[in-house]
Design a protein around this nucleic acid. Structure first.
Lengths: 186, 186
DNA sequence: CCATCGAGTGAGTGAGTGCTCACTCTTCGT
DNA sequence: ACGAAGAGTGAGCACTCACTCACTCGATGG
């Protein structure tokens, strides 16, 4: 049983690779049923590892939740950053670019629901609340730096984003009537 | 052990009175730790009844959750309605009156968190999503009828409300910096 | 070839958790 | 005075959940 051939073929993954997988499938799972509503067994199964090993990678469920939240927020930040950079290079409106980037992210139900669950979980998990605030501050600074808009416009920008979150979360579509059509516009 | 005296004194409550109490303390309990995070035992204890009886009053936990959500939404609607009526009588701006009414409601942490948890729970509980949509539609109709504003202004009104929700949920206060000061204004 | 170490798991465990059932005690109309 | 209807509960069932431990096995350097 000498593994003479295929020197780069690994049957075991590194812990870091596994953590990566767990974060990814964990985010999906949490998005569907919420942080408390999703058991760790389910995430372990989806990641293709035992629950016991999941707890070696993330010592508590809370730590996994916080890691998922951090990653989702980071992804939003990077999308905004890239959109602004592109807009500047192309000479188009950076705010519009960022708004479009956010809309695009929200079409991914996983990102959307992670946002909403994050805000709900902030009440019981101080680490989540802290992370939310930190990324809000960073995002605000980014928008302010890249657009040089008035605080009033920036307020409107974020407010619209939060309304979009809620509309999507409660499943409001244009068919539900004029109210949904009006409130779902960016 | 004859209860000879005190003929009008009732030691038992009616089921309706109990349901009322359960709704009230249930809303508080759910607000703190979320719908899934709050066990029914805790609510029963807070309401001063056995868990067994709680399940006679509300046959499933989900039914209790939906009842709590309905009540919170109804309270918001009534607050808006009263504010608009008062504004019309006094000749002041009805939109401003409703905005103030909402701000006042949000100072009650129970109402605030019930809103946020409702939006998060909408993903897993279709009844909650349906209730959210129904009350949003009613609220929209009310604002439109009472203010005769452009859809753009109504959009801004609701968007601001949702942003306020989130800011409060993640515990953002003015001390957290200029971003919080800007985004927390109505 | 072997020692060492990191990857990985089967099989739990104790503390809940929603919900049920058989039963008791009050109230109230007649 | 009595009996039906309603208020109310103790005890527990069936199941789930986060988390643990003793253990196996594959990879890698010397």
């Amino acid at each position: 049983m000498t593994p003479a051939a295929s020197p780069t073929k690994r049957t075991l993954s590194t812990a870091e690779e596994r953590r990566e997988t767990v974060l990814e499938v964990g985010m999906s799972a949490f998005a569907e049923r919420g942080f408390l509503g999703t058991p760790t067994t389910e995430i372990a199964k989806a990641a293709g590892i035992s629950q016991a090993y999941l707890f070696r990678l993330f010592p508590t469920k809370t730590e996994l939740i916080v890691a998922v939240v951090e990653r989702a927020n980071q992804r939003i930040y990077e999308a905004f950053e890239a959109a602004a950079k592109r807009a500047h290079a192309e000479g188009t409106d950076p705010l519009e670019a960022m708004a479009n980037a956010y809309s695009a992210l929200l079409t991914d139900r996983v990102m959307l629901m992670t946002q909403v669950h994050q805000h709900a979980a902030a009440a019981s998990l101080p680490e989540v609340a802290e992370a939310s605030r930190r990324w809000f501050a960073d995002l605000y600074a980014l928008v302010q730096r890249e657009t040089e808009l008035t605080t009033d416009d920036i307020h409107r920008f974020f407010a619209t984003g939060m309304l979009l979150n809620v509309m999507a979360a409660i499943g409001a579509t244009d068919e539900h009537g004029p109210w949904a059509q009006t409130l779902r516009v960016c």
